[in-house]
Nucleic acid binder design. Structure first.
Length: 588
RNA sequence: GGGGACGUAGCUCAAUUGGUUAGAGUACCGGACUGUCGAUCCGGUGGUUGCGGGUUCGAUUCCCGUCGUCCUCGCCA
């Protein structure tokens, strides 16, 4: 049907008779001659309808409108002098149409795929087929394909086997909320869509598939974000007879190949590693953005000397006084601007306030609270913060947790507002040595930071009995530009150790048996030491494509209310279907 | 569940302190034009200002509710 694509023809094709197919991007009718920019996913080619091509064709071409699907046959010709348009790769040539075939008309599209004004996202999602015609979307989806292809090839070379695991599985109450699927055959029973293939892949290790990967669809019924969809894709991986270093090495190889082939960047390996504790101390978060500095600086010791009650009280009560130096920002943030930052940390992160100083030309610290500090102490603070004239110093005095959250968010916000980094740069790092446990806010007991099968570091095993809080897991997160791109752990393959962890988590034997007895049983039948990792593919594509929203790298994403604007899902179902499932809908 | 932004023509946006017939660009329809490429020029159609209620002589504008999209806190082992 077609001989070439709309991005293919060059000078060397001049004189050839070719057939192009595509969508009418724009048309320019000059009465005696009519131009159409014909578009397909490979590019745009100008096709020309002129009397020499036959009056019938010219007449028919006058009926063409945006997004009509046409096929044109004719000779490739050099463009007349002065009419070359190098905005398009085909801009040196044009197609002189001899035969036009309208393959399909189009209703007037809600928006033009190549229009400069991008419509609202609801419109884009409702007419996703039009939106997906946009070159940006097509480039992103092709990029996504290329990245997945690179990953599959890489892991294939490394002897990994891709194995599919079920979509219909068992619900596990830990972790995120499950998407549930009622069983028709067994009324009152439910499957859960997988949050990850975690348990299956561990069982595959027991089964001897020592190098497993899967590009796995995963589901989590939690609220959405710019970088979070209820349905997403993970590059899921598990290996046997390995250490954490082996897994990190394999992933670094994959990431380096992506960086090289997609971005043309030569990554220096191994990637830097930072412990969880260090990340929390220096950045207030376990996925710090290392593209810029403005680190958190601790002043708790100095705060104890302060007259200022907020500082001293917090320090004496075991809290922390930490701050950041927004270098050169004193002028940019007026009193009102700082008030805005204050309510930002107070309203969102529970900080009680935001203390601030502006560094004046003579190096002195100016602030409404400055009178509560001795000149000597101000000098010490200034030195600690590395303050220079024009700097804005911001402090949060609170519990460690609140100071982390507030200052992390503040650092992120200020860095964006002050343009502290080039959005094109890419920064890769590992965060390691995560705590095994975190306090569960609801129950007050211990909860697994990652999941209950995570192995502690061997040297920390005694801490399980004495001081679980200090116990560190063999866990590692890949962080790209301050975004968690993936995370993994070495798993427990020892029954006794697993039991001990369950005990700490308050999972009694019966519960454990009920929920994942099959895994515990499998571990008894010759489980090799193993571990793995999962990378968020959507997020990876988003980061590599330099996009701000995960929806822009997913063909058919959901809105914040988890609806599909195009299909209308979720929707009502027939009463009969409900009845067959043996369930009742409480409210309609 | 909480906080915030937005919602006006098919699309992107405007509309003075609350003021009379809600405008512009683009798309669409008609006309002119043989080298344009965001074509140009002339003319035209197109509006339940998301929806419901309230205040007012008068509401796109103010208030309440509701629906939708986005950002965010909680949540996301």
């Amino acid at each position: 049907m077609r001989s070439h694509t709309c991005g293919q023809l060059r000078r060397e094709h001049i004189g050839q008779t070719v057939t192009l197919c595509g969508w009418v991007d724009t048309y320019r009718d000059h009465s005696g001659v009519l131009f159409v920019d014909l578009r397909d996913r490979y590019g745009i080619t100008q096709v020309v309808f002129a009397p020499e091509g036959g009056d019938d064709n010219l007449t028919a071409a006058k009926g063409l409108r945006s997004e009509f699907v046409i096929s044109v046959t004719g000779k490739v010709a050099a463009r007349p002098e002065g009419t070359v348009n190098m905005k398009h790769s085909t801009g040196e040539i044009e197609l002189r149409v001899e035969k036009l075939q309208i393959l399909n008309k189009s209703a007037t599209p809600p928006f033009q795929p190549t229009s400069k004004d991008l419509p609202g996202e609801d419109i884009r999602l409702k007419y996703r087929y039009v939106d997906l015609r946009r070159p940006e979307m097509q480039n992103t989806l092709v990029l996504r394909h290329r990245m997945i292809k690179i990953l599959r090839d890489y892991f294939d070379e490394q002897n990994f086997v891709e194995i599919e695991t079920p979509m219909l599985g068992r619900s596990t109450p830990e972790g995120a909320r499950d998407y549930l699927v009622p069983s028709r055959v067994q009324n009152g029973m439910f499957y859960a869509l997988p949050q990850s293939p975690q348990l299956y892949k561990q069982i595959l290790m027991v089964a001897g598939y020592d190098r497993y990967i899967q590009l796995a669809k995963c589901f989590r019924d939690e609220d959405l974000r710019a970088d979070r969809q209820p349905e997403f894709t993970q590059l899921d991986l598990e290996m046997s007879f390995i250490t954490m270093e082996d897994i990190i090495g394999v992933i670094e190889g994959a990431v380096a190949r992506l960086a090289k082939q997609i971005l043309g960047i030569e990554l220096t390996l191994p990637l830097p590693q930072m412990t969880y504790d260090e990340a929390m101390e220096r950045f207030g978060h376990d996925a710090p953005d290392l593209r810029f500095g403005m680190e958190l600086i601790d002043l708790t010791d100095l705060a104890k000397e302060a007259e200022f009650k907020v500082f001293r009280g917090t320090a004496d009560a075991g809290g922390r006084v930490r701050g950041i130096n927004a270098s050169g920002a004193a002028e940019k943030y007026s009193r009102k601007g700082i008030d805005e930052l204050t309510s930002f940390v107070v309203e969102n992160f529970g900080a009680k306030g935001l203390a601030w100083f502006k560094v004046e030309a003579d190096g002195k610290l100016a602030s409404p609270i400055a009178k509560n500090f001795s000149p000597e102490l101000l000098a010490k603070i200034s030195e600690r913060m590395g303050a220079k004239p024009g700097d804005l110093l911001l402090f949060v005095a609170d519990s460690f947790e609140v100071s982390c959250k507030a200052l992390y968010a503040l650092r992120k916000r200020l860095a964006a507002e002050l343009k502290l980094y080039d959005p094109k740069t890419m920064n890769f790092s590992w965060i390691v040595e995560f705590p095994m446990f975190a306090k569960d806010a609801e129950t007050g007991g211990w909860a697994a930071m990652h999941h209950p099968f995570t192995s502690p570091r061997m040297q920390d095993v005694p801490l399980l009995d004495t001081d679980p809080e200090k116990c560190r897991a063999i866990a590692y997160d890949l962080v790209i530009n301050g975004s968690e791109a993936g995370g993994g752990t070495i798993r427990i393959h020892d029954q006794e150790l697993q039991q001990k962890v369950f005990d700490l988590l308050g999972i009694d034997r019966e519960t454990a048996k009920e929920r994942f007895g099959f895994l515990l049983e499998a571990l008894q039948f010759g489980a090799p030491p193993h571990g793995g990792i999962a990378l968020g593919v959507d997020r990876l594509v988003m980061l590599f494509a330099g996009l701000d929203s995960i929806r822009d790298c997913i063909a058919f994403p959901k809105t914040q209310r988890a609806t599909d604007m195009m299909t209308g899902a979720p929707g009502l179902v027939d009463a009969k279907q409900i009845q067959e499932l043996g369930i009742k809908v409480a409210k309609q």
